[in-house]
């Protein structure tokens, strides 16, 4: 573990793995909930946790160096079920990357226990981990200018669900009607770091639902 100072009031704690980042994040949330840590933001990411708005970052760095990362697994968050139709336009490409049939992509994906490692990119966009490394997929060679809201997508080691229509380069494998972000709802975000997620397969919809605007990929 390395604690890197960021400006005058923040600390970036770097760890060796996704699991360590999750454990450290859970421990920092526990300390804050118990009044042991005064901080404005705790932002977990792939291999780091950022603490922003600290009065004395150097002191916390020393404390964390002494206490280390807890080896207890992070407390299990609640489980969110996301119903999915595995009808995405990149399902065939993903099946080819994985070396399986398209139906098998749905079976493997829906059979995986996911966890929100961190959020970013857009309000309510979670980076979900859980798939084994052999199922990593590259981003699309040419990003789409508009990925529809509710698209379930893969890139690298992550699964994500687009909270609203936006440009994006992830591989689209399905669609959901789940509302990922609604600022009039409490909480606004369906997913937050630590949330456990299951994708529940639905039968494919009619042909009209698969009408996704794309720009051609730069490959055959």
């Amino acid at each position: 573990m390395r604690a890197l100072p960021v400006g005058d009031g923040a600390l970036l704690v770097e760890v060796a793995s996704d699991e360590e980042a999750q454990a450290l994040h859970a421990e920092l949330l526990r300390r804050r909930a118990e009044g042991l840590l005064a901080v404005r933001e705790i932002v977990p990411a792939a291999r780091t946790v950022l603490l922003d708005g600290l009065a004395d970052p150097a002191r916390l760095a020393a404390e964390l160096g002494a206490s280390g990362i807890p080896d207890v697994p992070p407390r299990a968050g609640h489980v969110v079920d996301i119903p999915v139709r595995y009808d995405g336009p990149d399902l065939a490409d993903v099946a080819a990357h994985w070396g399986v049939a398209e139906e098998e992509v749905a079976r493997i994906h829906a059979g995986t226990a996911f966890r929100v490692a961190f959020c970013g990119f857009a309000p309510g966009f979670g980076y979900l981990t859980g798939l084994p490394p052999r199922y990593d997929v590259p981003r699309r060679a040419t990003p789409r200018t508009a990925v529809p809201a509710g698209s379930v997508a893969l890139a690298g080691a992550y699964t994500g669900v687009y909270p609203r229509s936006s440009p994006g380069g992830w591989q689209l494998i399905g669609t959901t009607d789940a509302v990922l972000w609604d600022h009039t709802r409490v909480p606004a975000a369906l997913l937050s770091p630590g949330t456990r997620v299951r994708f529940v397969p639905l039968p494919p919809a009619g042909p009209a639902a698969a009408d996704v605007p794309t720009i051609p990929a730069g490959r055959p």
Partner: peptide, 10 residues
């Protein structure tokens, strides 16, 4: 670099 948290003024 794997994605990491960003601060104002970075």
């Amino acid at each position: 670099l794997p994605s990491e948290g960003m601060v104002l003024g970075a």
